[in-house]
Design a protein around this nucleic acid. Structure first.
Length: 468
RNA sequence: GGGCCCGUAGGGUAGCUUGGUCGAUCCUUGUGGCUUUGGGAGCCAUAGACUCCAGUUCAAAUCUGGGCGGGCCCA
């Protein structure tokens, strides 16, 4: 397989199909079938999100798929941002519905009428709810597995707070969740505050979470929004404070999707296929028995014993007992990204050892059974560390600082530049370089310079890239 | 949303220009069997396709139009 930048797209489509993650032959565009192996991975990712939500006091809920048009229409900016990409349900059986319903493109308008009923007192706040469901967006025709789909596997956390300060603290917590979570996925990222013209429909401000794909384009992995009272006013989410005053809640949201999986595949993959970080690999270890004539039963019995011991230690293990040559199995599991492979044959059994092979480096180790547990533990950790380190190096070397638009011409990856904050100057950059302005770093930083276009003095830097 | 390209077994393809030679090529895959297993084994037998609809024509995989699906570029 070819991992060259020019062929990344081909490699990506090919690897997803061959590793049996997803099948895009379902006859509706942008709605792909999750095959069992792919579903295992996304469920692992969901589990990691649930762990983080649990840790930070969010409760899981589930809201209906259908939203009445009347609720959807309450917030003006929101509906403007989405109405060109919603699927409508207009009939119930043969009867035309008086109030059409839509398939949720995101769940603000499903949740907030209920929030309005649930929140009455300041003691009901903060309210921290999340759900992991499918949402539907009639996206641009250029769909791509996990990256641009019309049925989206979506995580969305929605919070309500007594004031802006508490809502801002929530966003800090979201960033901490992101840091822990991305470390397990071994995905480096940038958090950028979107320019005003590019924020989420209805948001006060939007933070985009960006990573860099091997073809030099950035991909948005998720977003965090500060709504202030933009939704609580139309949806009447009010509470009574300690003094008997009625106040509107301040709200935030945090959303991510199966793009996380797309990023893992793209960022870590190599010419052999996928490389899964141990935290999300459906199987962390695969055992390939070497079945030589006359010793098959003995080897299988040993292999099963080893599998059970590993399962007992909490690893996700698969014993590959298919009737194939070992070499064919090696290729298959390398394609599917299993972090560690254990080979077990008659010679190993005689020597009380096994062969352990790392997916990321391909390095083979002959490991005595006595130290096997330690070896596995250390190597799974080692894979996680080295995947993250390699990916970080690539994203940082992918950032180029430029002083003039001219300087950016022909560059790939992420461009960093000073910017005065005027939309006009940003547009000049977008048109001149055919890049998209991603936004300014969320973390405050003072960095004196001059605007790339109008040359005005400024402390603000902005990032731009070609995007997914 | 605008533009360009594409659609032949599960996957990849030949054939399409110039309609008839197609009862459709090759590789891979599936199934049954024999044999083998420390990096994609081999042999025998067998299965499987012209995206859909309409049109042109004596005749359509091949030409025309549309639908559906796919890929890429631009917004």
């Amino acid at each position: 397989m070819n991992m060259e930048k020019a062929n990344f797209s081909e490699w990506y489509n090919d690897v997803i199909e061959r590793a049996e993650l997803s099948d895009k032959r379902y006859p509706i565009k942008g709605m792909n079938v999750w095959r069992p192996y792919g579903l295992k991975v996304i469920q692992r990712i969901d589990d990691l999100i649930r762990e983080e939500m649990e840790r930070t006091g969010h409760d899981e809920a589930r809201f209906p798929l259908l939203i009445p048009k009347t609720e959807f229409a309450k917030e003006g900016e929101h509906i403007k941002g989405f109405d060109s990409e919603v699927y409508w349900v207009t009939h119930g059986g043969l009867n035309k519905l008086d109030v059409p319903m839509l398939l949720r493109p995101t769940s603000e308008t499903a949740m907030y009428p209920m929030f309005s009923l649930w929140i009455r007192s300041h003691t009901d706040l903060p309210l921290k709810i999340f759900q992991i469901v499918n949402v539907f967006r009639y996206e641009t025709k250029m769909t791509k597995s996990f990256i641009r789909v019309r049925e989206i596997h979506f995580f969305e956390a929605h919070t309500a707070h007594r004031d802006l300060e508490d809502a801002e603290a929530q966003i800090k917590e979201d960033l901490e969740i992101l840091r822990r979570f991305a470390t397990k996925l071994c995905i480096p990222y940038l958090v950028l505050k979107r320019p005003d013209w590019d924020k989420f429909a209805g948001a006060y401000y939007t933070l985009g979470i960006e990573t860099l794909m091997p073809d030099g384009k950035t991909m948005q992995l998720g977003s965090i929004h500060q709504y202030q009272t933009n939704f609580s006013v139309p949806y009447e989410i009010k509470y009574e404070d300690e003094h008997g005053e009625h106040r509107y809640a301040h709200q935030t949201t945090y959303g991510m999707s199966e793009r996380l999986l797309g990023a893992v595949i793209g960022v870590h993959g190599d010419e052999k296929g996928i490389v899964f970080p141990p935290a999300i690999a459906p199987y962390q270890i695969v055992i390939v028995p070497i079945l030589v004539k006359d010793k098959q039963e003995m080897v299988m019995a040993e292999a099963k014993q080893l599998r059970d011991k590993l399962l007992g230690r909490g690893y996700r293990v698969h014993l590959d007992d298919r009737d194939m040559r070992p070499g064919a199995k090696y290729y298959d599991w390398e394609l599917k990204g299993v972090p560690l492979r254990i080979e077990l044959g008659p010679r190993d059994i005689a020597d009380r050892k096994v062969v352990v092979v790392r997916r990321d480096t391909g390095k083979k180790a002959f490991v005595k059974r006595g130290v096997l547990w330690l070896h596995i533990q250390e190597n799974l950790k080692g894979i996680e560390r080295s995947l993250l380190k390699k990916a970080e190096e690539r994203i940082f070397t992918g950032i180029t600082e430029i002083g003039t638009i001219e300087e950016g011409k022909g560059k790939t990856g992420i461009l960093k530049m000073h910017w005065c904050g005027a939309e006009e100057c940003a547009r000049e950059v977008e048109v001149g370089l055919e890049f998209t302005i991603l936004g300014t770093p969320y973390a405050e930083q003072r960095d004196h310079g001059r605007c790339i276009h109008c040359r005005k003095k400024t402390d603000t830097v902005v990032f731009a890239a070609k995007t997914y």
